[in-house]
């Protein structure tokens, strides 16, 4: 039983990271009907941005001196990484996606795959192909509750993810830009006629989604300790599956899907075989698309005849 709870806790923290990344997929799909394949790479770049920011703040000196990295600086690292990723996301949108927005749907899809490949390989060039150890922005403190080992890192991941997702919810439901996003996702042309700046709204979507992915990247680095330029491929795919599982286009769906994928992965690794922890995601994806293609919280759309 304690082992099960242990796996569930690990699954929840992993799932919160997937949820953060899945939000970007779902927001962009909701508004552009585009699977933004490059989103996993934005996540990767976000993790590296955090890595370099922490180095710039002298995390090595703190670590050598055995002192904890100040919380203020840790938050600054998070915000800087989020800003860097937002800049990257909006640049991708501007240079690669905007020119093909009106093209047949496969054109942007392939463009996105191209951007994804480009960032992976550019990452290998710039960051080097070898994995790097993530700096201890947060010092790990394990504690035990009823035989289950929890670390402050797992708790932080969960809390930060929850806080960001709650903020997003208020943003989408409560602000003018959030309303504009929902309007554009329902009917872009009508939204334009109502005076909504569609380009700006799409840009905001990419900025927010990318910033959340960067937060996911830093949490991932804290959790998994190692990062590398190809980390976005599989994690990105899993987050995408999470978005599809929850119902793509649905923000609560992305959160639910992320958590479920995280749990499924941990439980498979724990009880079946670690070899199949990656395969389970794809099995889930295929089952969802065959049994309930609109996802758990999505809406059915039928083509008009």
């Amino acid at each position: 039983m304690t082992e099960f709870i242990q796996q569930v806790i690990n699954g929840l923290s992993l799932g919160s990271i997937y949820a953060l990344i899945a939000l970007g997929y779902t927001m962009v799909y909701g508004i552009l009907r585009l699977i933004n394949f490059a989103h996993g790479e934005v996540f990767m770049v976000g993790a590296y941005a955090g890595y370099y920011a922490a180095s710039a703040f002298g995390i090595d000196a703190y670590e050598r001196g055995g002192r904890a990295f100040p919380l203020v600086l840790a938050v600054a690292v998070l915000l800087l990484a989020m800003a860097a990723a937002a800049a990257l996301g909006t640049t991708i949108e501007l240079l690669a996606y905007r020119p093909v927005r009106k093209a047949p749907r496969l054109t942007p899809l392939i463009t996105a795959i191209g951007v994804s490949l480009f960032l992976q390989n550019a990452g290998m060039l710039v960051f080097g192909p070898n994995p790097r150890r993530y700096p201890p922005i947060l010092k790990e403190v394990p504690f035990e509750i009823g035989g289950v080992i929890v670390t402050n890192i797992k708790v932080t991941i969960f809390v930060v993810a929850l806080a960001l997702m709650t903020a997003l919810r208020f943003f989408v439901l409560g602000t003018w830009t959030g309303r504009a996003m929902r309007a554009v996702s329902i009917h872009p042309d009508a939204a334009r006629l109502m005076g909504i700046d569609v380009d700006r709204t799409i840009r905001a979507c990419f900025a927010i989604g990318s910033a959340l992915a960067a937060a996911g990247g830093i949490l991932f680095g804290l959790d998994q300790i190692m990062i590398n330029p190809l980390m976005g491929v599989l994690t990105g795919l899993k987050a995408f599956v999470a978005a599809v599982l929850g119902g793509i286009g649905s923000i609560p769906g992305a959160v639910l899907g992320g958590v479920l994928i995280g749990l499924a992965e941990q439980l498979t690794a724990g009880y079946l075989s670690p070899d199949y922890r990656d395969a389970i995601t794809f099995v889930i994806l295929i089952l969802v698309l065959m049994l309930k293609p609109e996802g758990l919280l999505g809406v059915v759309k039928q083509e008009k005849v």
């Binding site: 699977i35 749907r105 899809l109 795919l237 599956v241 199949y276 990656d278 395969a279 994806l285």
Partner: peptide, 28 residues
């Protein structure tokens, strides 16, 4: 047989998933 009911980008992602599953199976 099961996947070709899906359209467009969904089909693309499922084929991607199957491609990866096949590779993971060989890997094991």
């Amino acid at each position: 047989i099961p996947t070709l009911r899906l359209r467009g980008d969904y089909l693309a992602v499922v084929t991607l998933g199957f491609g990866e599953i096949i590779r993971i199976v060989f890997n094991n």
